[in-house]
Design a binder for these strands. Structure first.
Length: 588
RNA sequence: CGGGGCGUAGCGCAGUUCGGUAGCGCACACGGUUUGGGACCGUGGGGUCGUGGGUUCAAGUCCCACCGCCCCGACCA
């Protein structure tokens, strides 16, 4: 391709408000343009890189048995109603009516459609296991798109779906994806780690997220340097400091006027925060076919810990949580600021699992200005649910090895979910088992967003001058820069080299513009193609063409006769550098 | 949805305080000089000043409403 007629120009400055490095560079280098909030056009350079990423995705998923297909972006509402997600997902799902007034959905993901297809395609256990996938547009009307391609509303995702007869089969395909995903990220030269994650709107029993650790990320991860424990903060666990065992003492009411925080309470009574019980009062929402059902949740946790809302949401199997208002708190018979689970009826009490083994805590008295000493469960109040609802964070002890945990920011570049039979059962995707019974297909779902992956690669591989693409993702392998000026002879050499590169099947972007050298070099550095060839009077005088790698400072002069071989050798060695990154990763 | 910021030529910005009929740099076109790290001279084209309403003899500038985009938070995978 000749740069003089290439669609997509470079910009000296990034548009106002563009902050993430990957966003700035992709815009300045002419890869992407924004149409609206979270909506981007991918210009030819980006399109070429995305195609490379997609082909890596194809190769790795095909290698574990994937069969590529394509499912629609617009879905009739019925399939989403069948699984309940029509009701449980909020405004993030784009809905519209077709000309016949039928409810329609823009696909956020494709579990429903896969399950629907299975109704006709999968009849017998003899056909299983299978793995299908596609690379398709998704739309999620995210409340806050940000950071260029890192978080958008319309995006392309490789999503694969495993179909098995049982949990063992699912586990096998899940583990195959676990490794395949590492291969994919390694082949894109993107360092990523797998962390345990919440299953969120997908449901299911086990999930991992692949995280690219970077400040631009919006997920907080909890990590252990010692044993390698890694989890999204939403589900991260830690070892809780054990309370000393004591005799249970009898309840005693004490005056604690104007003492509404744990800090003030601990200070007033001169006890450690770990000797107090903190109440968190929330309304839990359950989206059901008949509408939204609300439930009052009284969560109890020791005063030295914080509640993790994701864990609490999962413990009560709710679709959402929001803080209870003072009116709602009074309505169940509690007193805001001095709430106590003792004496309440018909309220769901969720108790953190450290509380029952922590004797004689200070709790609210359900009376303004008073607390109770020596509150104990189950003696004084019953827990509807006992679960781990505590947040883990910096400095907490690792559950596995006891070492201090630390937190880091990351971008989710992929996820894998064990779905089980939630979707197949709801849609009626069953198979005839060997024993003659009809059983729902056991499913898994596995996603990687290609645009976000591209942005992360850009985020990871750049310098102050511009992008530095790994060879596997680069839009072209070679940028040929002609510094011909008025020298017809130099132009002839550049044209000849261009023709030779094309003939050799080497991907080349030819800067044939009549620009000054500084402009051309600056653009080449900005676009970040791995190998730069410079044809100039100076280089010809030294015996040939200058070759320089974008990721290195030094350059060499190669004779025109040896150039194709030399370039191919360099490309091969770059490909080998990438291949060396692909290694087996133990399943965790 | 809450808090903050911005909207003037393709891009970056000034002009808004104090109302008087729109400007700078880059980019673009033409002519000339220049050619190994974002050249220079000259000429030229390009604007519903986000949208609508209001105040006024007069609005980019003042008032009201709305829209769009960005950042932080809530939310989400």
């Amino acid at each position: 391709m000749k740069l003089s007629h290439h669609f997509g120009t470079t910009l000296r400055e990034a548009p106002a408000g563009v902050e993430a490095i990957s966003h700035q560079l992709l815009v300045r280098a002419g890869f992407i343009r924004q149409l609206g909030q979270g909506l981007f056009s991918y210009l030819p350079l980006a399109r070429r890189s995305l195609t490379k990423i997609e082909n890596i995705l194809r190769e790795e998923i095909n290698a574990i048995g994937g069969q590529e297909m394509t499912m629609p972006v617009a879905h009739p509402a019925e399939v989403w109603q069948a699984t309940g997600r029509w009701y449980s997902i909020g405004p993030e799902m784009a809905r519209f009516k077709d000309r016949k007034e039928r409810d329609m959905v823009l696909a956020m993901t494709h579990e429903e459609v896969v399950a629907d297809l299975c109704k006709t395609e999968i009849k017998s256990y003899r056909q299983l296991p299978q793995l299908v996938y596609h690379i398709q547009t998704k739309f999620r009307d995210d409340p806050r798109p940000r950071a260029g391609l890192i978080r958008v509303r319309e995006f392309t995702m490789k999503d694969s779906y495993s179909l098995d007869t049982d949990e063992a089969g699912l586990d096998k395909q899940y583990r195959a994806h676990y490794q395949a995903y590492f291969n994919i990220f390694n082949r894109c030269a993107l360092p990523a780690i797998a962390v345990g994650s919440d299953v969120g709107m997908m449901g299911g029993s086990l999930a991992h997220e692949y995280m690219y650790l970077a400040p631009v990320g919006e997920d907080t991860l909890v990590l252990c340097r010692q044993c390698g424990y890694a989890a999204n903060r939403q589900i991260a666990r830690c070892a809780k400091p054990k309370a000393a065992s004591e005799e249970l003492k009898s309840i005693e009411k004490v005056a604690t006027p104007e003492t509404k925080t744990i800090e003030a309470l601990a200070a007033l009574l001169n006890v450690p925060k770990s000797k107090t019980a903190k109440a968190l009062l929330m309304m839990a929402g359950h989206e059901e076919d008949s509408g939204t059902r609300e439930e009052f949740i009284f969560a109890v946790i020791r005063g030295d810990m914080e509640v993790n809302e994701t864990k609490l949401t999962n413990a009560v199997k709710a679709d959402w949580l929001q803080p209870a208002t003072d009116e709602q708190i009074r309505a169940i018979g509690a007193t805001p600021g001095f709430a106590s689970p003792i004496g309440l009826k018909n309220v769901t009490v969720v108790v953190d699992d450290a509380v029952p083994s922590s004797p004689n805590l200070v709790a609210g008295a359900n009376e303004a200005g008073y607390h109770l000493l020596n509150a104990n469960t189950p003696r004084d109040y019953a827990a509807t649910i006992v679960a781990d609802i505590a947040a883990a964070g910096d400095g907490d002890a690792c559950l596995n090895c006891g070492q201090p945990l630390y937190t880091a920011r990351g971008v989710e570049v992929g996820n894998i979910f064990k779905l089980g039979t939630r979707y197949s059962a709801a849609i009626g995707a069953t198979f005839l088992a060997a024993d003659g019974t009809q059983q729902p297909i056991v499913m898994g779902s596995y996603g990687i967003g290609s645009g976000r992956l591209l942005a992360c690669v850009a985020e990871e591989h750049h310098d102050d001058k511009g992008l530095i693409w790994p060879i596997s993702v680069a839009p072209y392998h070679v940028q040929l820069v002609s510094l011909a000026g008025e020298e017809a002879g130099v132009n002839e050499v550049a044209d000849r080299v261009y023709a030779a590169l094309l003939a050799a099947g080497i991907e080349v972007l030819y800067d044939d513009r009549n620009e000054r050298p500084g402009v051309k070099f600056a653009d080449a550095d900005l676009i970040g193609i791995p190998i730069r060839l410079t044809v100039s009077t100076k280089a010809i005088g030294k015996g040939g063409i200058e070759m320089k790698r974008r990721d290195r400072k030094e350059f060499e002069i190669v004779s025109e006769a040896n150039l194709m071989t030399r370039v191919q050798t360099e490309i091969n060695s770059m490909l080998e550098e990438i291949a060396a990154k692909v290694v087996e990763v133990p399943f965790k």
